[in-house]
Structures are given as structure tokens and as C-alpha cells.
Design a protein around this nucleic acid. Structure first.
Lengths: 228, 228
DNA sequence: GTCTATAATTAGATAGAC
DNA sequence: GTCTATCTAATTATAGAC
């Protein structure tokens, strides 16, 4: 799915073999680190998937941990950018509408990039320098905007007073697990979580349950007029 | 946390060192496999935590995979037994009450054994013989009883028609993630997911959200009389 | 920028003493 | 039942040729 088949320089006398080895290493690292964790993957395995030799990884990245951080940054920045793009598109009037649309944005992302939820699952279960870095560098900044809306919703009374940690875990876990654990879903129910029907079914389920969970009264689903 | 400093037999001339090495190996394997996965843990690390030597693992277990399976069976059978005990205690009248109590039973278990959710997260993300074994041997049998109630609820009309895979993932993910990813929760919010207040807060949140998500109308919360 | 060769360490598993 | 000693293969990382 990430085959970089655009030939890069093509200028003839350069020694470049294959389109950007650094990018292929990152793509291979992303898929492998996501499903087997930092300790569960060898740089030799990454090199094999990337189609290069193992020592080349150490030319492009200082060590295994630097490769891991670069992999996280490459993936998490995509979500961050999609959030930013979504915020710009929103009318900025109704906070409840804002919350729902950001949730849709999130579900859409974790459906397309199940690796995201996998990385969080892999690193979230034990204290480590890697977890601390991931939280400080990426998760806290992305969550801060939601905390602001949450506080507003509590103050204004339209948000149910479920605590913020519980709320976030409920939404993010429900949304991402279905896609991140597609093999489990397949083995348990014979259902392919990656097919369009299932993506739609799960997105709808998550948004409906989450909206019921956080809002005291439902919002007008698609009408643009309701602002009060 | 696993220091076996209680002297066992102490009876002088026996060769027993420490109380049941096999059990200590299983306990060490459980905590390590849960947070770092099968490939992420070495038998040497397990031996060190268990306070025995690495080759002794191969006396008690055929190989690393056999140790992993024994670890899973030891943990998952606890949940299975708690379900059975709960079923025996229930009045067997109201199916909705049954569902809610089984959910409480599940949340209570994952709060006390966060390793359970961790194992499922670790193995659920990639197809493997281990995942297939886990699903066939443990998950499918435990889920079958809920599938029966679900079908009944759909047929009788008191269950919202959310698909079964979505429903199960929503409930189990919401319930277990908070406890399984306690280090993430701590790093993100400064909240200790293992303290009694948080366990109660999360259990309440999960049950309330889940009940809203699956039942068309709420049930009488604690009254024993309502049977419809 | 990518390779081959290799160093130093650690992996899972076996043999055999006690 | 538990140990020490050890085998083979795989691990991360470096050196140096091209």
C-alpha cells in the first residue's frame, strides 16, 4: 500500500538505487513496529521488508530508537494535519457540531491508518522513555484542543459530566480497536474490518454511541441553521 | 513486585528452592508477555524475574510457545470461572439484567487483571497461530453465551440493532483500555488508573455508556421486582 | 548512498552434573 | 527439580570498500 514507485531523480549518473531508501525504511518500520512493538522487531527484518541491507538503516538513522521516533513522527503528524485541515473547514459556531465532526475525523483516520492505534496500544502499557516522548511530543498537543471544548461543555451544561480521561479513552478505544485489531475481528467473527461496509458500520456505531455518551441532548443532525 | 523472599520449605534437606518454580515462571511470564509481547520478551528475562535460571524454563515447558500458552490458559481460565460463578448467582429471569451484570463482571475482571486486555491487544493485531489458538480455545467459547442473549434481544426488540462485532469491540475496548494502558493514562492526565476511585469512576462510565448503547429503554436500576 | 564483512552481545535450546 | 556449561543462530552496531 505504500509502494513508492515514483522514480526520484532519474538524472542518470547518480548512484541512487530504488526510490528513496530512507522513505522505504520508514514505511517498513511503520508496519512492523506497529504490530510487533519496538522490542519485537529487528532492524534486519525492517531492512528485508524495505529491500535494503541492515547497515543502511544506521546510515539514515542514528540507531533503532531514532528510527522508531522518526516513524512515529511521520505517522502522527498526518493525524495532526488532518485535524488542522478539519478545524479550518468548520464554521466555528456550534461547539457540539465541532466535537462530532472532530470525532468523525478521528474515526476516519484510524480506519485508514490502523497502525496509529497499534502504536498507542504497544507503548501505552508500560512506562518508558518512548511513551513519555510520544505523550509529550504528540498526544498532549493534539488533546489540548479537545480539553478546551470539554471544559466549555461542562461549564455551559450541554456536556454530561463524565470525567475527561474516561471520556477520551472510551471514544478513542472504541474507534481504533476495531480497525487496529482487524485480525482478531476476522478470527472471531469472520468479518473483514477493512472493507468499506464495515468501516461505515463501525464509524456510525462509534459516533452514535459517543454522541449519546457525551451530549445531554442530541443535536440537529445535518441542519446548518441550528446555533442556539 | 514479584520478589519471592518468603523462604519456602526451610525444612533443611529438601532440594526445593523457592515456592514452586513452575508457578513463579508462569507469574513472571504473565507480566512480561503482557506488556512486551511474545517476541519482545526473552526467556532469560522471564527467568530473572522468576528468580530461577533460564534452562529451568525448558524443564517445565517444552519451549517458549508452550510457556506462552500455559500463561494464557492460567489467566483466561480465571475470567471464564468468574463468568460461570456470576451466571450461577443470577436469578435467570431478566435478560437485560443478565447482560448488565455480566458487563459489570467483565469490567471488574479487567480492572483487577489489566494483563488480560494487554494480551488481547498484543495478539489481536496480526494473524498468527497464537491468535487463532487464543480465539478458538478461549474467546469464542466465552463469547458464545453473549451471542445467544444478543440474538434474543434483537428478536424480542429490546436491543438496539448495532451489529454484534461492533457491540463487543465497543464494550470490551472501552472497559479494558483504561486499565491496560494505565501508564498512558498516568502520562497523559496524571491519573492513577489503578486506584479505587478511578476503578469505580471508569466502571460506572463504561456500564452507563454501554447500557445506553445497547438497550432501547433503560431498565429499573436495582429493583429486584421488575420482570416485565 | 549503498554495499560486504564483521565485532560484540544476546537469543532459545540442549547436555549432563548433582 | 535445579543447576552450570555450552551450542547455534540472531541481535545491534561499526569499519571500510565502492
Amino acid at each position: 500500500m505504500n509502494t513508492p514507485d515514483m522514480t526520484p531523480g532519474e538524472s542518470g549518473f547518480s548512484i541512487e538505487r530504488g526510490p528513496d531508501a530512507r522513505e522505504r525504511i520508514l514505511a517498513a518500520a511503520e508496519s512492523l513496529f506497529a504490530v510487533r512493538g519496538f522490542e519485537g522487531v529487528s532492524t534486519t527484518q525492517i531492512a528485508k521488508v524495505a529491500g535494503i541491507t541492515q547497515p543502511l538503516i544506521h546510515y539514515h538513522f542514528k540507531n533503532k530508537e531514532a528510527l522508531w521516533k522518526a516513524t512515529i513522527s511521520r505517522l502522527f503528524s498526518k493525524l495532526s494535519q488532518e485535524f488542522s485541515a478539519e478545524v479550518k473547514m468548520l464554521p466555528n459556531k456550534d461547539d457540539r457540531r465541532y466535537l462530532v465532526e472532530m470525532m468523525r475525523c478521528y474515526v476516519s483516520f484510524v480506519a485508514r491508518y490502523p497502525q496509529y492505534g497499534q502504536f498507542i496500544m504497544r507503548e501505552g502499557v508500560q512506562e518508558s522513555a518512548r511513551l513519555q516522548w510520544m505523550v509529550d511530543e504528540w498526544l498532549k498537543p493534539m488533546l489540548s484542543q479537545f480539553h478546551d471544548i470539554y471544559d466549555k461543555g461542562i461549564a455551559e451544561g450541554w456536556m454530561k459530566d463524565i470525567p475527561f480521561p474516561q471520556l477520551i479513552i472510551l471514544i478513542t478505544a472504541s474507534a481504533s480497536q476495531f480497525f487496529s485489531m482487524a485480525p482478531l475481528v476476522k478470527a472471531l467473527y469472520g468479518v473483514d474490518a477493512t472493507c468499506p461496509e464495515q468501516i461505515l458500520a463501525h464509524s456510525d456505531a462509534v459516533v452514535e454511541v459517543a454522541v449519546n455518551a457525551i451530549l445531554r441532548e442530541p443535536i440537529a443532525q445535518q441542519s446548518e441553521a441550528a446555533t442556539a
